[in-house]
Computed example of a mutant assay.
Amino acid sequence: MAGTLVLHDNTALSASFDCAHARSSAEARVCANAALRNLDDELATAYRVAIDAAEGSSKRDLKREQRHWITFVRDICDDDECLTTAYAARIKVLAANDSVLVNESSCEIPEGSSCRSVITYRDTSYRIASFNKTLKDHHVAGSIIGCDRLIDLPVGFRGSNHSFGGFCTLVSGGGRTSVKVCNDDMLGRFAIEPVSSGTHAELREFTDARCFGG
Rank of each mutant, 00 (worst) to 15 (best):
F17L: 15
D18Y: 06
A20W: 07
A20S: 15
A20Q: 14
A22H: 03
A22W: 01
A22Q: 04
A22F: 04
S25W: 03
S25L: 08
A26I: 11
A28S: 14
R29E: 04
R29N: 09
C31R: 07
C31A: 09
C31G: 03
N33E: 04
A34E: 12
A35I: 07
D40K: 06
E42P: 00
Y47L: 07
Y47H: 02
V49T: 14
I51Y: 03
D52A: 14
A53F: 00
A54L: 01
A54C: 03
A54R: 05
G56V: 10
S57V: 09
D61A: 13
D61E: 12
K63D: 02
R64M: 04
H68S: 09
H68C: 04
W69K: 02
I70R: 08
D75Y: 03
D75P: 01
I76R: 04
C77F: 00
D78E: 13
D79T: 11
D79K: 04
T85P: 00
A86F: 01
A86T: 08
Y87D: 01
A88P: 01
R90G: 02
K92Q: 13
V93K: 14
L94H: 09
A95H: 06
A96S: 11
A96N: 12
N97K: 15
N97W: 00
N97A: 13
D98A: 15
S99T: 15
V100Q: 04
N103T: 08
N103S: 09
E104A: 13
S105H: 10
C107I: 10
C107E: 07
I109Y: 05
I109S: 01
P110G: 07
G112K: 07
S113A: 11
S113E: 12
C115P: 02
C115G: 09
I119E: 03
T120V: 14
R122I: 15
R122S: 11
R127D: 07
R127A: 15
I128Q: 01
A129R: 12
S130G: 10
S130A: 15
F131Y: 15
F131D: 02
F131S: 05
N132E: 08
L135T: 10
D137P: 03
D137A: 15
H138S: 11
H138A: 12
H139W: 04
V140G: 01
G142W: 05
G142H: 04
S143R: 13
I145R: 08
G146E: 07
C147Y: 10
